[in-house]
Simulated assay, not measured.
Amino acid sequence: MNRTIKCLLLAIGIVQLPPIICEAQSKKAKAEKWPAGTSPQEVGKRVAEHFVVTPHTNFGRSTPPKVITYPETCTWYGALTFARQTGDKELAKKLAQRFEPLLGAQDTLIPKPDHVDYTVFGAVPLELYMQTKDKRYLRLGQGIADKQWGPPEGPRVKPESHEFYNKGYTWQTRMWIDDMFMITAVQSQAYRATGDKKYIERAAKEMVLYLDSLQRPNGLFYHAPDVPYFWGRGDGWMAVGMAELLRSLPKDNPNRERIMKGYKSMMASLLTYQAESGMWRQLIDDEASWPETSCTGMFTFAMITGVKNGWLDAATYGPAARKGWLALVSYIDEHADVHEVCEGTNKKNDRQYYLDRKRNIGDLHGQAPILWCATAWLR
């Protein structure tokens, strides 16, 4: 890579150089790296601190949830990774204090790990264990990860649950693209926390099943096999799931090449659908669809992670990631709430159903990707 290209990438925040290289350009680039108020440090801090004081959410309902919901899990995980990456011990302490009641009188809020949306909760105690070395968190998180690959049990078991289990997949497999974050997140975290390769190998095998079954020729994914629409956040779960998995998947894993191929194919396709504003849409390929923040955050995270790890060409994807981030933070208001977040969404074979979804403010589906991106920029 020549010096001109390096200086360009420095200016967009993708690489860092020794001071001796293009020193004058470097000083200018550092000063102009992020417009005021848009740096990952500033934005991540605001959104994380806002989460700390946010009561447990229940998909927009006024009543408290019976158990911790997956959007809260995702935001909690993001806030914890941001605290670790920035060395913010006070923030980390607050996030641990938020968890403490769940180890005591409020333990009924811990989701039963019998569905992907509940099992993902294990990612949070596993992150807390890695940061605190408190074995209470490890026991809880590892137990949840193990349950996901244990024998099928409970009222959610279906005939196909046994078929998947007998083939070495989790019995919670349901072939919705959302699953490829929910499943891979907790299993990748269990690997990071324990070093036991069985967890990451499980996740990789599962990811290949979904890629082989669901990825379309254009690199994107229908919401489900019977729903032929490229729903933004659904594809976002796949994008983040692949990036998070590849970040920790050993280079000698036999499934790594297949997953990388699926990931790069998706990123190349997403590049063509990014709007001039930097946003992606509620329905990715539908220009009549509205710009949506949760999927924009997820795709931006996947591209940042790809450039940082050298999987994606920095000169191509670095500007797209920066553009996505700057567009995304423009949707954050003075209360650190993200606007234009698609509400929780089931699958339906109806274009208008997706276009008419409620656009929420402060929905944790949208808060979480902000924190993931802020962490990824700083890695």
Rank of each mutant, 00 (worst) to 15 (best):
R3D: 12
K6I: 04
C7V: 06
A11C: 11
I12G: 02
V15D: 11
I21C: 12
I21R: 09
K28M: 12
K28E: 15
A29R: 05
A31R: 15
P35G: 05
P40E: 13
P40K: 09
E42V: 11
R46Q: 12
V47L: 06
F51P: 00
F51H: 04
V53G: 04
P55N: 11
V67Q: 14
P71C: 08
P71S: 06
Y77M: 08
L80A: 08
A83S: 08
Q85F: 02
T86M: 07
T86V: 05
T86W: 05
T86H: 10
G87H: 03
A92H: 09
K93V: 09
R98N: 05
E100M: 15
G104N: 13
D114A: 11
V116C: 10
T119Q: 02
V124T: 12
V124Q: 00
M130V: 01
Q131E: 04
T132P: 00
Y137G: 06
Y137N: 06
L138T: 01
G141A: 01
G143T: 02
K147P: 04
Q148V: 10
P151G: 09
P151Y: 14
E153G: 12
E163C: 07
Y165M: 00
N166F: 14
K167M: 13
W171L: 07
Q187W: 00
Q187K: 01
G195I: 06
D196G: 04
D196A: 10
E201W: 07
A204N: 04
E206T: 15
Y210G: 03
A224I: 06
V227G: 01
Y229E: 01
F230E: 15
W231H: 03
G232A: 13
G234R: 07
A239S: 13
S248D: 14
D252S: 10
N253W: 03
N253F: 04
I259A: 07
I259P: 02
M260Q: 13
K261N: 10
K261H: 14
Y263C: 11
Y263Q: 09
K264D: 13
S265H: 09
M266T: 14
A268P: 04
A268G: 10
Y273D: 09
W280M: 00
R281L: 15
Q282P: 01
L283F: 09
A288W: 10
P291N: 08
E292N: 05
S294P: 00
C295S: 11
T296C: 08
T296D: 05
M298S: 07
V307Y: 01
G310I: 00
W311A: 05
A315K: 14
A315G: 08
Y317I: 03
L326R: 07
A327E: 07
A327R: 08
Y331E: 14
I332W: 02
I332E: 01
E334C: 07
V338C: 06
H339K: 09
C342K: 00
K348R: 15
R357K: 14
I361P: 06
H365M: 05
P369I: 01
C373P: 02
T375G: 10
A376P: 01
